[in-house]
């Protein structure tokens, strides 16, 4: 999946991946996609929850070897 921006949060535990996501998404335009890379398993539940709360769109999650790529579309 193609993203407009990538955020590397490898090695960071909760809540830092969503804290950094909240910051990073401000740099994007509406409709653009942010890819967040994380090795914290909590991201699987936390990113959809963050998206529901903030009104952004959770697109999909790709699981690799011990790492997750999460795609979020900025909606507001």
């Amino acid at each position: 999946m193609k993203a407009d921006a990538i955020l590397d949060t490898l090695g960071l535990y909760c809540p830092m991946p969503i804290v950094k996501t909240a910051k990073k998404i401000k740099d994007l335009k509406i409709g653009q996609v942010l890819e967040v890379i994380s090795d914290d398993e909590g991201i699987k539940e936390d990113m959809p929850a963050w998206c529901r709360r903030t009104g952004n769109e959770f697109l999909r999650i790709e699981e690799g070897e011990g790492e997750y790529r999460v795609y979020v579309r900025k909606l507001k």
Partner: peptide, 12 residues
Amino acid sequence: FNLALGAAAMEM
């Protein structure tokens, strides 16, 4: 503080 940061990131 972790809860506070998380909540702030959730725009609360």
